[in-house]
Every structure is written in structure tokens, then in C-alpha cells.
Design a protein around this nucleic acid. Structure first.
Lengths: 160, 160
DNA sequence: ACCTGAACACCGTTCAAGT
DNA sequence: ACCTGAACACCGTTCAAGT
């Protein structure tokens, strides 16, 4: 609170007019963070679901790199806020378009999102600080590959 | 520091005889946490590598559930401490025994560990608080399955 | 060797008071 | 409506002083 207030050229107490408390302010930051994840066309022009998912995953990772201090908070709350639900529903839509049966979409979304978040948070939080950027890019590509294979296997390999 | 001191019936300043500072104390807690991950026989009696990995993953998850406040710290530091290296090397050993080429073992370890950690931390930190225990058990089993398939695919499907 | 008291610089938060 | 001063209860940490 003190740091934010100072950045605004104001006393800490002034903030309590605009946010309820520190947790509320952090919630707002997280909500803002999720804004960076691109909306995905709910009824896309066939077949590009895989690349939609990869785009969202890359956006998540880029956001983590840009805001390493706030990003790890994403692991602490379920998708209850509007932006969080929007992102989750986008992923579910893309999965269904990729051929994942509707009954399994929610679970597959949880597993895929958790894997991507786990990587992004690890990177942001410093667990990979001893590795080169090239190595991490390679790891991330490999992760997207294995998740793609998983989605395909759940989709049964059927074309749409 | 205050809470720990109170638990010990001592003033906070007394702790500075035994730990350098708060970060040092937390490092010690994390080290203790990793103790709960079972050692894996480095030269096991053939073929059981998959179940060794599943055992370690389950132990990690159980530890996360038992110590939700400390566990998320595992995402913040690379495997530089003795226990962290021991766990990482155990996973690498099991992967090689499962047929993963030695050159790829480190990367596969990173991806597999990150996925398991991501799930365990999410659960510990409360991201899945709206889901039933049964649902989470099912999700975790599914995660182990997809990671097993991934390891197999890297191993080339060859028997050892 | 181990612990304590006093002190310091910092937090988040409240509430009455200002404009 | 929005901001501030003063105050409160809390942190982690230091250092000289105790035993």
C-alpha cells in the first residue's frame, strides 16, 4: 500500500477510498493481468483450435514474464472473477472445437491450464533462474507439444 | 518470526542465534518438506520406473496438502539445496530407467516436475477449493496418465 | 552459549478531521 | 467527494546487556 501510494504521490490512507484493502487491490491487479490473454473467437473458422490454445498459453507466459511479482497470485484463487471465467471459458471452447467431448472439457481445461500456469509461475517466481532463455523457450515448446498430444488423444484423433 | 518464537515460548530475537533471518528459516522448512519425498532405488530391479515416478508424485502432492502455507515456496527456488537435488536426481534416474535417453532426461524432468508441482501448489494454495476431493483425485490420476504417456513417447516405446 | 529489553524502521488499517 | 494526521497493532531486525 505504501509503495503504491508513493508511486501516486499520495498518502497510503488515500487508497482506502478506492479499494477495500490490500487483498482487494491485489485482486484488481490479477484481473488486469488476465486482460492480456487474447479472447478467442468462440466459433472459429474450423480446425485452428490447436493454435488458438498455443496462442493463449504463450500470452500467459509472456504476461508472467512481464509481471513476475503479481503473476503467482493466479495459483491462489479459482476462476470466480469475470476475466478469469472468460479465460477459462475460452480454453474450454477451444478444446471442444478441437474435438474434446463436452463432458471432459472442464477436466482437460483444468489439467492443461494447470500445466501452463505451473510453468509460467515457475519461470516468473525464479525456479528456472539458472537456465537460459533458449532452454526455457525449448522447454515451453515441448510442453505445448505434449499438451497438444494429450488433447488429441482425448479428442480421439477424430477430425473435429 | 514472532509466531515461531511464540510457539517455542521464547522471544523473536532468540531465533537469530539459530537462523540468519526469515528467508533462512523458510529455506530450512522447504528442505524439511522435501524430506517427505521417498528416495528411489537408483538401480531398481527393472521396469518399475513408472510406478516409482507415480509414488514420488503422490508423495509431493500429499506433502502439499499437509503443509499448504510453506509448499508454494518450492516454485521460488531452483534445485540448489541438497534435498532438492536429491529429489531431482531421483526423478532423472527413474526417467532413464524408464528408457528416456540421457540427453533428454534433464528436460523431461523439468517438464514432469513442473506439471506435478503446478498441480500440487494449485491445490495447496486454494485454486481448486471449489472442487471435491474425488474430483481432484481423478484429475491427479489423469495428470499422471498423461505424463506417463509423455515419458513413454520420449522413451520411444522401447522396453528399457 | 543462549536469551532478553529496548529501539529502529517498517507494515496495513481506523477514524476523526480537514478541504 | 477525496485526502490527511495521528494513532494502533503489528512486522523483521540490530545491538548492547544480561545469565
Amino acid at each position: 500500500m505504501s509503495a503504491v501510494a508513493q508511486q501516486l504521490g499520495v498518502t497510503p490512507m488515500a487508497l482506502y477510498r478506492h479499494v477495500a484493502n490490500k487483498a482487494d487491490l491485489l485482486d484488481g491487479l490479477v484481473e488486469l493481468l488476465l486482460t492480456a490473454v487474447p479472447a478467442v473467437p468462440a466459433v472459429a473458422a474450423g480446425g485452428a483450435a490447436g493454435s488458438d490454445l498455443a496462442d493463449m498459453a504463450s500470452a500467459i507466459r509472456a504476461t508472467a514474464r512481464q509481471h513476475p511479482a503479481v503473476f503467482p497470485l493466479l495459483l491462489r484463487r479459482p476462476a470466480t472473477t469475470p476475466e478469469a471465467r472468460r479465460v477459462r471459458d475460452s480454453v474450454c471452447d477451444a478444446l471442444r472445437r478441437a474435438g474434446v467431448p463436452a463432458v471432459r472439457a472442464a477436466q482437460v481445461e483444468r489439467l492443461v491450464s494447470t500445466a501452463v500456469l505451473g510453468f509460467a509461475v515457475s519461470e516468473a517466481a525464479g525456479r528456472f533462474r539458472d537456465h537460459s532463455r533458449r532452454q526455457l523457450d525449448d522447454d515451453f515448446a515441448c510442453l505445448l507439444g505434449l499438451l497438444g498430444d494429450f488433447v488429441e488423444s482425448v479428442a480421439g484423433g477424430l477430425p473435429n
